[in-house]
């Protein structure tokens, strides 16, 4: 016998110190902020809160992008193209969507597309488009 049901739960997560600064800059200034690692000096984007290599905390803000390089991509059924990109000036990789990239290839140049309505989180970047294709 099978028992089925459904439940709604209203989760809400605190972005925390590092991600709040990132979200506010996206929302208010359409700027992408990375953070310099206090341990190893790498520029983190997404900016932490902690460095994936050395475990250090996110330190001073560093503006990165909006230009970027495509590191890896795949096409997901129903969800479009999903990618890892390196923003200009950053050392890490950011996971995001590709928009307006007719023929993705690793190493190609991309540019962040900002959402017209922005709320202060990663969705304020709609995705990354091929450099040179404007809307």
């Amino acid at each position: 016998m099978i028992v089925e049901g459904r439940v709604q739960i209203p989760f809400r997560y605190a972005a925390g110190a590092a991600a709040s600064r990132f979200g506010a800059a996206l929302r208010d200034e359409r700027r992408i902020l990375g953070a310099r690692c206090t341990g190893c000096d790498r520029v983190l984007c997404p900016p932490g809160p902690f460095c994936g290599s050395c475990g250090g905390a996110a330190g001073a803000a560093v503006e990165v992008g909006p230009g970027a390089t495509l590191l890896a991509w795949t096409e997901l059924p129903d969800r479009g193209a999903f990618a890892l990109v390196r923003l200009d000036g950053a050392d890490g990789a950011l996971a995001h969507r590709l928009v307006d990239v007719p023929e993705p290839r690793v190493g190609m140049r991309l540019r962040a597309r900002f959402a017209p309505e922005r709320g202060g989180d990663i969705r304020d970047i709609e995705g990354f488009g091929a450099e040179g294709i404007e809307r």
């Binding site: 997560y13 605190a14 925390g16 110190a17 590092a18 991600a19 809160p49 902690f50 905390a57």
Partner: peptide, 12 residues
């Protein structure tokens, strides 16, 4: 409420 920190920051 500790809205000032995310879960990883709370752990740190």
């Amino acid at each position: 409420r500790r809205d000032d920190v995310s879960q990883p920051e709370l752990v740190r």
